[in-house]
Design a protein around this nucleic acid. Structure first.
Lengths: 264, 264
DNA sequence: CGTTACCTTGATATCGTTCAAGTACCGTGG
DNA sequence: CCACGGTACTTGAACGATATCAAGGTAACG
């Protein structure tokens, strides 16, 4: 966090990567170039539709979105929240069609680039490729944790857990102030993220408010006692480490591959 | 499937990759070398414990395992089934500690290699790196689909869906014969995978049997009418495509990166 | 032949859903 | 400035899917 301003990438993605691996100027240039083509979208607009052929890879620069999957009869599951700095459809572009949709929750600023650039990335900037791949693994970990929530935690626990998760993720990109952040979601979306009904989410939030763990005012949510909320949600510190930066990543990425060769 | 025997990699991982991207002999050699160090494990042994520091990367060669996460009070969620050809902890080695455990369900044959080899892989064989990364994305898609199941499908639907999923995945590696395959799991494990109680899984399986969709005999399960079972589980063809090989992957990986340069 | 692990099924309890009704808020057009 | 309609939130009441409790049953194994 104490790096010279001049060296700080200006995009959330750049900042995110920079937070666990310092970038060479070539890498920085390449990354910035990927984010050059920016488009703006209104609230509630589809960045990707389930079943659609993938177009370009997208990077969220500003705003929130959700990744969601729907059943034919309309039941829906929100798989994850897409926050600034997150990538949409990284490898997925190699799939035939999208198995999920992505929809903005707020007005959003999105960078777009061609999937071929990813192959280029793999060939020219292996360190960067590995870093982005690691980022993808992190997302998988988040989804697995949500699966644990939905499969095994009670309504109160899952709700508490999700709030702590969002708090943690947002504070990495500097969007939390004194336990307060903007939560631009309807209760319907929370319900779809947690596998609950709207009514029950409503009652659960009320309970969390009554206990005095959170405050809700419009889209502002305030977490009074993160520790207690985390304990209600059984928020695991192991999981926290995943969301934050790994210490040995940079070191690992800088290891010279040639020293120990493959077929010794 | 009609490639010359001589060119067919002998390991499930090699076969899996070979199924969507033909490998150069260097790549094949590197891959084979990764799998050189094989260890054997009994049934119900932990290949990785939740909270443990990651050791080496592992490749499942023979047998089944589960990836699972537990809550402090013992509740448990099975995140995914690890089948032959699957990799355990690919990028995850860059995390501090494991956020999940991996436990064998059958006697297993596992290949082990050092995490540094992955960096090596990224630097020396970008095509292979991208292919493995894609494989990881596929796993994420599978987990997301399970999240949809657990969050939004009824017990009957999820159970049907899981059976079809396993059938599909196993047939890729040639482990299904006429709708029949070995399912080396207890009902407790199924319950933990689907977010249900043991009792309820039992009743649900009974219902599927009564309807005549499946037959169970010990660990042998026979699916009589895949189509009907898939329709009960709302098994999506989009999802099926994910599990199987992408057509354009190889083409994409062969694109020359040097033609269009980064910072033109 | 007793012990253990797993499967099975009935009875009862509960968490979360569905249905229903009402409220608050906001933008829009008269 | 007010009436209107839409969207989201809220709360009560009844219902239902799934959990929990309890009690066998069966097969494998030392």
């Amino acid at each position: 966090m104490n790096r010279a301003q001049a060296n700080m990438p200006s995009s959330p993605l750049g900042r995110k990567i920079n937070s666990y691996m310092s970038l060479t100027s070539e890498e920085r240039t390449f990354l910035a170039d990927l984010e050059r083509n920016v488009t703006r979208h209104g609230s509630r607009s589809d960045l990707l539709q389930q079943g659609e052929r993938y177009g370009c890879v997208r990077v969220m620069r500003k705003g929130w979105a959700i990744r969601h999957k729907a059943l034919p009869d309309g039941r829906r599951q929100v798989v994850n929240f897409v926050l600034p700095g997150d990538i949409i459809g990284f490898y997925c572009n190699l799939f035939e069609t999208a198995d999920h949709g992505v929809t903005t929750l707020t007005p959003a600023e999105v960078a777009n680039f061609q999937p071929e650039r990813i192959i280029e990335l793999f060939k020219l900037f292996p360190r960067l490729a590995a870093a982005l791949a690691w980022s993808g693994a992190k997302e998988e970990a988040i989804i697995a944790e949500r699966l644990l929530s939905v499969g095994r935690r009670t309504a109160l626990e899952r709700t508490a857990h999700l709030i702590v998760e969002l708090l943690r993720r947002l504070s990495i990109v500097g969007l939390v102030e004194e336990g307060r952040f903007t939560l631009p979601v309807t209760q319907e979306i929370l319900a779809d993220a947690l596998g609950l009904s709207i009514v029950h989410i409503n009652r659960t939030l009320r309970r969390l408010r009554d206990i005095g763990l959170i405050d809700l005012a419009g889209q502002q949510i305030t977490v009074h006692d993160v520790k207690q909320l985390a304990s209600v949600g059984q928020f695991d510190e192991l999981y926290l480490h995943l969301i934050q930066a790994p210490k040995q990543l940079e070191h690992a990425l800088d290891a010279k591959p040639d020293r120990k060769r493959a077929g010794d």
